[in-house]
Design a protein around this nucleic acid. Structure first.
Lengths: 142, 142
DNA sequence: CTCGAATGATTCAAGCTGTAAATATTCAGG
DNA sequence: CCTGAATATTTACAGCTTGAATCATTCGAG
């Protein structure tokens, strides 16, 4: 009664725990590098995904979060003069997010920081390919 | 200048995105089931990990979060009468967390809910083993 | 034994994240 | 053209999470 090992769900649970742990490690990696540029992890992720002008929704999809969340994050980046909300050229409902010159420069530095010592550096290219395939399958199938 | 595809880091980034996406899907799975029991995802995770009496720190490690976070979550569970903080038998600094009868009963129902339609059901047992091995390797190796 | 370092837990401030509701705009039919 | 459904964004709110500071207790070296 004190420490029953729990019968079946243990394998699934372990696996979920590993996924979660790795995700946290990835976030931590971003957090540390971003901090050296005065950015939070969320702000850095937004900046990283800004490969070009896009709408709030597009950014939300890239960040896999809710659009309301990007409102919050972009507010911060805009206050720092890194991003600007322009009117969208064809849809007056949408915003067209564009990096300022300063934002683009900071993004370049950020990308340089993020590639070193990746949290997945413990895997070979071959292993990464297998992992990618499995994750893709897990995410897309149901 | 408008949409440069970004040179090298794309593979790593995609992989990290997949891990993150799957982690969110796992959390979402817990969130939905937990809600039917009047629990939040964090509360349900804590309850799930309560396989027996343990300290706050032990629980934090199982949940892969900071101890200060478990203080917050256990506060909620304690208010609902599901968990109690007892003095630790051998270390007066520590708390001994124990489930109440109600807590244990709710945990049993929760575990039953969590095993159905797991977010990893798109993978075969064989694939799960491979995934487990790769994740373990990624997490432990630096 | 005693002192200082380490550990368990908590508190607080700050930031992240999701849901639901509200507003503005677009779009497809009729 | 008009209307209702759908979409883009924002706001308000509630809950989660972290990190630093704090307090009590334990542990180890001398």
């Amino acid at each position: 009664m004190t420490t029953s090992p729990d019968p079946q769900p243990i394998a699934e649970r372990q696996l979920c725990g590993l996924v979660n742990g790795l995700a946290q490690r990835i976030t931590e990696h971003v957090r540390v590098r971003a901090a050296t540029l005065g950015l939070t992890a969320a702000q850095a992720t937004a900046l990283r995904e800004m490969t070009g002008p896009m709408t709030m929704r597009e950014l939300a999809e890239r960040m896999t979060c809710e659009p309301s969340n990007t409102t919050f994050v972009i507010d911060k980046l805009e206050k720092q003069g890194l991003v600007e909300r322009h009117p969208h050229p064809t849809d007056r409902r949408a915003k067209h997010l564009v990096l300022t010159a300063e934002g683009a420069a900071l993004r370049t530095r950020l990308l340089e920081l993020l590639v070193v010592d990746s949290p997945l550096s413990g895997l070979t290219d071959q292993e990464k390919r297998v992992l990618h395939q499995l994750l893709e399958q897990a995410v897309t199938l149901r």
